[in-house]
């Protein structure tokens, strides 16, 4: 009985491993093709290894293009880093105020935040386009960064976390004469590491992969992020250069996958934590 159960478990594991491999196959295939010369990527039956594999495609993509993928990479890192740090800063402060401080119209204001959480980007893109032209930040990285410094969802997640923090801690800080900012910075924020990491991960993934906003707000290819850099590269290279395109796509993808694999536990928890309410 025991060994039969183990056998079933083993078989199920094998089946699911096959399913999982099928699911990640496109990425494996992308990686394989990124090392191959053009004439070998459409071979059938496909070969996973060939003696002609090399880093030539990567050299071409990283160093012989203008602008190169290094530039796109740099733009993506800057945009993502500033937006993520900024949003953690603004949403933890606002989330704390919504959860633990009293001010006029607090609950009405929070309701307004909740309602705007469901506004799709399609509604914002036309007015933001006009707004950014008038503000002079159209076609700059600021057009990607500034609107992303304030995420209603981030504020919502931080508030939900701070609601659980015992008010006694805050009262004790007041008794000690810490002042509101001291209490927040020294007592409350250190407790909020799980919530902060959720906000960081969510925003990191969204900003890194953002496609529609840079497509609309950037026109200068020197400012492109990896996503739009990749699409403009495809437009220019055409499909006669699928091997280069695969190398470019791998360059765009690898950093995210590496970060994901390193922090997978936190990533999966963070990205799915929106669902565990109530």
């Amino acid at each position: 009985m025991q060994s039969k159960r183990k056998l079933i478990k083993l078989i199920l594991t094998l089946i699911l491993m096959v399913v999982a491999l099928v699911i990640v196959f496109p990425f494996i295939w992308m990686l394989v093709c990124s090392f191959k010369p053009l004439n070998e990527i459409y071979e059938f039956p496909p070969r996973f290894f060939s003696p002609n594999m090399s880093f030539d495609n990567y050299k071409e993509v990283l160093f012989n293009q203008n602008p190169s993928f290094m530039t796109y990479f740099k733009n993506t890192v800057i945009t993502t880093a500033v937006a993520v740090i900024g949003t953690v800063f603004t949403s933890s402060m606002a989330g704390y105020a919504f959860a633990k401080l009293n001010f006029k119209y607090r609950d009405q204001l929070f309701m307004l935040y909740l309602v705007t959480m469901m506004v799709p980007f399609q509604v914002l893109m036309v007015p933001q386009f006009i707004q950014f032209k008038y503000m002079g930040i159209f076609n700059t990285l600021w057009a990607l960064i500034l609107p992303r410094l304030f995420t209603p969802l981030g504020t919502f997640l931080m508030r939900q976390f701070f609601l659980e923090v015992p008010t006694e801690i805050i009262e004790a800080g007041r008794v000690d004469g810490l002042g509101e900012f001291g209490i927040f910075y020294k007592l409350v924020l250190p407790l909020a590491k799980p919530a902060v990491s959720t906000v960081v991960i969510l925003n990191f993934v969204w900003r890194w992969n953002e496609y529609e906003a840079p497509l609309i707000f950037l026109t200068d290819s020197k400012l492109f992020t990896l996503t739009v850099g990749l699409t403009s590269f495809i437009d220019e290279a055409g499909f006669a250069q699928d091997n280069l395109i695969m190398a470019a796509a791998t360059v765009a993808l690898i950093p995210m996958i590496l970060v994901f694999l390193i922090g997978q536990k936190y990533f999966i928890e963070g990205l799915t934590s929106g669902s565990v309410k109530g």
């Binding site: 399913v19 699911i23 992308m30 996503t227 695969m246 990205l271």
Partner: peptide, 22 residues
Amino acid sequence: IRVMIFIPYIASIVAISVVWMM
């Protein structure tokens, strides 16, 4: 297995589209 099947969710839509086109 969970990590493997989760990867498409965090991958850039552009990279995904490019591979599937091929």
